[in-house]
Design a protein around this nucleic acid. Structure first.
Lengths: 241, 241
DNA sequence: TTGGCGATAATGTATATACATAATGAAGAG
DNA sequence: CTCTTCATTATGTATATACATTATCGCCAA
């Protein structure tokens, strides 16, 4: 119920329509007023109402059909924005000291498993890195990463001792596309040892694969002890409130 | 590398700028041409380039500062759109028959735990439902749900035998806000029994809480056997590819 | 040197207008 | 009665214009 003080006309119209949809006053399937009618109602030009409705359509709240009008959409699937912070930032937001250590680092020709993880078809060489992230003195997260040296040859010269692989790659390829796969798994003996937890503990596993226009960049498995970590995703109809 | 055939001017400009950012040609911090210069380059009006840059700013790829210009943003956190399908749709996409069964259903005054889960402050009554979703004959997912009868009194009359609680609520409160919390947990004896898995199996747990303008609606814990399920979230710079 | 003041330059919002596009529905031809 | 055609109508995209907002820079004075 926060009344926006200096809301623009655009925001006012947008908010009014959103409120009527979210409250259920306009249920899915309901036809909302035409652009020209809304413009008349608010005493503005059609361009203004057009931009509002276009934005609502992009956010998925309404559907627009030429000649027919605009209709409140039927929600299909719960979708939400998932924010995965950098591990260092995540640890620091817990007011703990962040450190990382490289546990293993090897260059090799890509084997079958590597090719599948990176979606490589041709022969290529990769860098395989195992890294432990700590919050204070306790292990926080295990990182098992493959880097395609074909796409990022500069990685071969890096030891990643001072800068973690994730942070370094973010500088090299700032705006790559990514796909995340989130699942749960029991820690095997090796992982349990590295994370200092009991074998069989449930862990949250995030696999992130990233691509640049030049090709596959990296595939990383992040394993978190499950009882200590959770991902949070929020959804507000129409974007952010 | 798909060349858009009938791309609008807006899409062309947008794509060109995105490409230069994603490729690294324009690194974070780089100042991109002014609206008027872009307009001159493409032979269009400033309104067109303005809308393109405004959209890029909303998607987080650039930052805009009055008098200074527009700059490629520094990526802060990996964020991606997570789509959580309805369980029924999810099962059917696996080409399996979907059924659900109500295992328990109880109305009660909200206790301390209920109030915390629903973020209720006052006394209220809630409906507590345990429901098993099956793919074919095998359990697929366990649903433990609280519904606030203050916000959705109609729920009291529902048995949810024919329509699952999630589907029913989606009809009642179509466009509610939601918060998801994703974690991993070991199945205890009760959950293992209901899901037909061994005690201690790692499970993916999604807690979804939803609100309507009238107040908290529901809190649901979805527990999936971890080795059989994964969530997928994708990120493409600038929205969808 | 320092402090403030105003010109400037870039973005932010809104308007009126124009024409393109596509779906609907009605009129007309076979 | 059916198929085609065409006018209508609502959205989609783009333009030229206007004025508001707000950082930044340079000038001038204390």
């Amino acid at each position: 119920m926060t009344v926006l003080r200096d809301a623009t006309l655009h925001q006012r119209i947008l908010g009014d329509i959103e409120a009527r949809i979210v409250s259920g006053e306009w249920p899915p399937g309901h036809r909302i007023p035409f652009e020209v009618d809304l413009a008349a109602e608010y005493g503005c030009s059609r361009m203004t109402t057009n931009k509002v409705l276009t934005q609502l359509a992009k956010s998925g709240l309404i559907e627009r059909r030429k000649k027919s009008g605009s209709f409140v959409a039927h929600p299909r699937a719960q979708s939400a924005v998932l924010t995965i912070a950098e591990i260092e930032a995540e640890v620091q937001s817990l007011r703990l000291a962040y450190t990382h250590a490289i546990h293993a680092r090897a260059k090799r020709r890509a084997n079958a498993g590597d090719k599948q993880r990176l979606e490589l078809s041709q022969a290529a060489s990769v860098l395989d890195i195992t890294c432990i992230h700590r919050a204070g003195s306790a292990p926080f997260c295990l990182e098992e990463r493959l880097i395609s040296l074909t796409t990022v040859p500069e990685a071969e010269a890096e030891t990643f001792e001072t800068v973690s692989p994730g942070t370094w790659l973010l500088k090299q390829v700032p705006w790559s596309a990514a796909e995340h796969r989130i699942s749960a798994a029991s820690a095997d003996a090796a992982i349990a040892g590295l994370l200092g937890i009991e074998k069989g503990t449930a862990c949250l596993v995030i696999e992130r694969r990233t691509w640049s226009p030049a090709g596959p960049v990296t595939s990383v498995l992040l394993t978190y002890p499950g009882d200590r970590h959770a991902l949070v995703a929020k959804f507000a109809p129409g974007g952010e409130g």
